[in-house]
């Protein structure tokens, strides 16, 4: 009875420890892989990363300021296919879609007027993993530099 109790405690400790460990991996991925790629743009210091499953979509809203040059980087872990992303303005107009740029992970742009933009991302589904979709870290990072 006592052994079962100890086993259960270990099980609970192990399972509840998973999120921290997985999030720590995601953090390292964002820092070591994605942030580095922003160079020569200056990272803004914000952290946006999460575990996504193949087929899953996410949206990120951000205000971008005029007279600043930005780099948006959308990075997926190695076990995922290249991440699809598009940039949409507040009128719903698609300003950029990386599927027309060979799924480039980054986009550099500047704005003549400050505005909110939406970044829509999707983890593509691989035919090989349809039965057991892969899950991996996806990070969205922003860099800027003065014009």
């Amino acid at each position: 009875m006592m052994r079962k109790g100890i086993l259960l405690i270990f099980l609970v400790a192990f399972i509840t420890g998973i999120p921290t460990s997985v999030n720590a991996q995601c953090k390292q991925f964002a820092k070591k892989t994605c942030k580095v790629g922003l160079n020569p743009y200056q990272h803004d210091g914000n952290y946006h990363a999460a575990l996504l499953i193949e087929g899953e979509e996410a949206e990120l809203y951000k205000t971008f300021y005029s007279d600043t040059e930005y780099r948006i980087g959308v990075c997926g872990a190695g076990n995922l296919n290249a991440i699809e992303f598009k940039i949409v303005d507040s009128n719903g107009k698609v300003l950029y879609n990386n599927k027309y740029q060979d799924y480039d992970w980054k986009w550099d742009f500047r704005l003549e007027s400050s505005q909110q933009l939406k970044i829509v991302i999707k983890v593509p589904v691989s035919e090989d993993t349809m039965e057991n979709p892969e899950e991996g870290c996806v990070a969205i990072m922003f860099g800027f530099q003065d014009e």
Partner: peptide, 8 residues
């Protein structure tokens, strides 16, 4: 799945 929403 439900679409995840982030704000920066």
């Amino acid at each position: 799945t439900a679409k995840r929403i982030f704000y920066s």
